[in-house]
Amino acid sequence: MSIREGLRYGSLRAKWRIVDALIAAKQRAPVDFDGGSDRFGYALLIPGVLLVSFLAVGMVFLAWYSVLTYDTVEIIAYEYTLANWRDLIDTGTFYTVFVRTIMYSAAVTAGCVALAIPYAYLVVRTDRTLFRYLLLFGLFVPFFTGVIIRAYGWLIILGENGLLNWVLGTLSLPTVSFLGTPVAVLLGLLQYLLPFAVLMLTPAIASIDPDLERAAKNCGANQWQTFRHVVLPLARPGITAATIVSFTICMANYSIPDLLGGGTLSFVANFIYNQVFGTLNYPFAAVLSVVLVAVASSFVLVVFKMYGTGTLGVEVDEA
């Protein structure tokens, strides 16, 4: 017997020992493991539910912090007050920042979904393997490259001596400075969110029967009409999901407004961060967080109510 075979045999034996020990332990355990027992099913859910509880408990903490008193030395004093909520109404900056966040998010979401539909459509429908592979590559490279790296890429492109100005210069056009302007922030956010939107749309488009499109063509519809009256309505679950995902991620973004907005175009996330680390005003940051969660979730709820959960619904069929 060679050493290699010996090792294999040994490891196989060890494996069986472990399995046997497990079986023995199981038989001795006082719990009923029979397939039918639903109690075991609940036990399986415990770790996941516990993990997420951090956030649920955290939301309760935030609600509690939001009515505590801010103290410049102790950070929080355990005295109840509504002053933080009154600050929310009185602070004009907050209003500007919130409206800006929502407007930008709406614009970016609309752009994202519009750009994602043709992309997702071709990813699903193209019959050219290489082209499809390129499209997937273009989708996953940004998806797997973090937001900071991509914001940095935009800094290089849009900067004073950046790619864009070099191209404009060689074409003898006047140079521009986009950094710190809404254009830079919008471009950055659009590029950041487009992969998410495409990923949400592809399952919906993949589930459209291509025969329906052929049927529309046979009935005399041109490509645009087929797209408008067949593909678009059937892709609605995907559009819903893409809208929700883009909007909520966009609303909570910190890095792109921070790095590309030049400090003048902050979003709610930047505002919260500055409260936490700038003035250490935890209670006011808690108020802002609660409001941000409320706005984001009511948006999601309204869309769910109007259009259903789309492709976001966790598809867990009962076996």
Partner: peptide
């Protein structure tokens, strides 16, 4: 409930972790 990590904005999740 298990989708909570997606519904809570990341900056808020971060703040929650900072507190807890």
């Amino acid at each position: 409930y298990l989708l909570l990590p997606f519904t809570v904005p990341l900056v808020v999740s971060g703040f929650i972790f900072l507190i807890i």
